[in-house]
Design a binder for these strands. Structure first.
Lengths: 205, 205
DNA sequence: TGTACATCAGTGAACGCGCGTTCACTGATGTAC
DNA sequence: TGTACATCAGTGAACGCGCGTTCACTGATGTAC
């Protein structure tokens, strides 16, 4: 009764357990058996819900993209105009990454060998990309004379924000590098992203 | 005679074998035993030259940073002024990454748990950073009125270039995303980096 | 309302595998006299 | 130049481990009549 034979919603419980393992012990500790153990279930039970390990990883990564989108949306809501919205989305991206580093690694790393085999994952990744490119497009539309290619601008923004996120996650950058003055991660990323954002306003000479 | 008992330079041979495994089968296949096999030596021989697996990985990662520095230097040599040199270094960074994706992952990933334990690795990573920050500083010095903080500018440049490198490596970006027009990786990264580079020339309003 | 039975979601034992590391060893090399 | 011996750089067997996956199974649930 306290441990019914049927779990009820094991699929989601497994995804949740996997995310907990990522947060606690990192991506190196994420095995199918560990996930089953943490969900309190035999090690073969996951096979009722996922074809194999990679299918579970793909579901976890998809959940990660949903978290990323949530972080970006929350920050974007507070921004009045497209210019500040671009920065807000970027800060949200970095905020998600620093709070969920191992999820970020799974989302972008080589553990999921064949992403095309997981349409759900591709769909939600596209959604995140669309959010960024849409906001950049709005931003560029403000400025009739802007000559910046919107695709290049989107790729550049994404690169900047993604690189900053990973350098922070990998501890290559720490937030008190700026001349010994300690500033938070959010503030540092805001400054860095703002510097870049200005490039979008450039007009031809 | 063809297989002498003493190898001669097993240490370097092991590093070379590890790099080959990275290039061929990726970071997931990089085990100590696989390295020994590829070097044609018993699986315990590496312990004469490295304390443990992580020590070998650190040596391989250090070699990776040397390769990165080499790529950046080569491109920088052809650049006459500091402005084009900044772009050249960035393109070199991305070029290294796309040619040696698994090495990049090892250099920045979580496989080497404690980087402070490997001073050689830290030294050569600092050297790469110094190369970038020095070039950015020269670039900013051209422009008396520039108000950009050099540390922020360096971190921003590094982020952009690092993010672009990883998105390419992870196949999140492919070089014919730009409206179906196929352009090479080098050309794409040059365009993206150039867009960013302009932000460094900004003057106060 | 009660029963037979198909289906579903779990279990537990077992498989074969590759891993990092240790241990006692041995062959090759170099050095002191 | 020759020999004894210490040191160095390899070997091969073995350890214990955790992994992904398969298999035949069983308990619980739901549905047809």
């Amino acid at each position: 009764m306290s441990q019914p034979y049927h779990h009820g919603d094991l699929r989601h419980a497994l995804i949740a357990a996997a995310i907990e393992i990522l947060e606690i012990d990192g991506i190196g500790a994420l095995s199918l058996r560990a996930v089953a153990r943490r969900a309190g279930v035999s090690q073969t039970a996951p096979y009722r819900h996922f074809r194999n390990k990679e299918a579970l990883l793909a579901a976890v990564a998809a959940e990660g993209f949903r978290g990323l989108i949530r972080h970006m949306s929350e920050r974007a809501e507070g921004a009045a105009d497209p210019a500040t919205r671009v920065t807000a989305i970027g800060v949200g991206y970095v905020a998600f990454a620093t709070r969920h580093p191992a999820q970020l690694r799974l989302m972008f790393g080589p553990e999921i060998q064949s992403k095309p085999d997981h349409p759900e994952l591709i769909g939600v990744a596209r959604e995140a990309y669309a959010m960024l490119s849409g906001t950049i497009a709005e931003r560029l539309a403000l400025d009739d004379a802007a000559t910046v290619d919107p695709v290049i601008a989107t790729l550049a923004s994404w690169s900047m924000v993604h690189g900053l996120a990973l350098l922070l996650v990998d501890r290559q950058i720490n937030p008190n590098m700026t001349g010994g003055v300690e500033i938070g991660t959010d503030a540092l990323s805001a400054r860095i992203i703002a510097l870049f954002g200005e490039a979008l306003t450039l007009r031809p000479d």
